[in-house]
Amino acid sequence: MNLNTIIENNNSFFKPVFFILSCFPTFYLAYLFYFDQLGSNPIENIIRYNGLWAYRFLILTLSISILREQFNLFQFFYLRRMFGLFTFFYSFLHFTSYIVLDQYFDWQEIWLDIKDHPFITSGFLAFLLLLPLALTSNARAINHLGSLAWSRLHKLIYLISLCSILHYFWMAKLLDLSTFIYLFVLSIFLLYRIPFIRKFRWIRSPSNV
């Protein structure tokens, strides 16, 4: 029995498991908050934590398509929407913690931040572009838009990825190893979308021979 069939036969088991796992960072943050483990600058810590998880889920979401196309692992495909929504969920926490905890609704300061600092502009843009994707993530929206229009709209994820890369890159004061790896992975995923790179079958899994 191979991996594909295991997953195929246990969809109803795996999906809730992945859901709970994806919620775990939120529980952990609540735990850190409750036990006062967020350090000397808890606000900065909360913002960065949620931002990093948004970024991780973005990588996870994009990797689902790559798994299908390059490794023929289409059985993970049903998780793509959920991971996409978790990307939005952590982005939302990231964005609201910036608005509420960092700026405390100082709209003028927020506007100047978005206007004057490309690091904030790119992050804000990524969040804005995620909104229509999150709103059209249900079957009704797909039917309403038609699958072609829907999939065109959802190509925005690549623009979102580009904005996220810039946001992360411009935020970093120095590029340490882990930041570099995060930026590198998402950049590779974006490069992969360039048609001639994508068409090339990098890995021939036994099932497509």
């Binding site: 600058n41 900065e44 700026q103 405390y104 300061e109 004057d116 411009w170």
Partner: peptide
């Protein structure tokens, strides 16, 4: 004079909520 990547108008005093 802002840092090119972020504002220098305000600061967070460690231990305080509002900037």
């Amino acid at each position: 004079v802002n840092h090119p990547r972020w504002s220098q108008r305000k600061e967070r005093r460690i231990g305080e909520f509002r900037k």
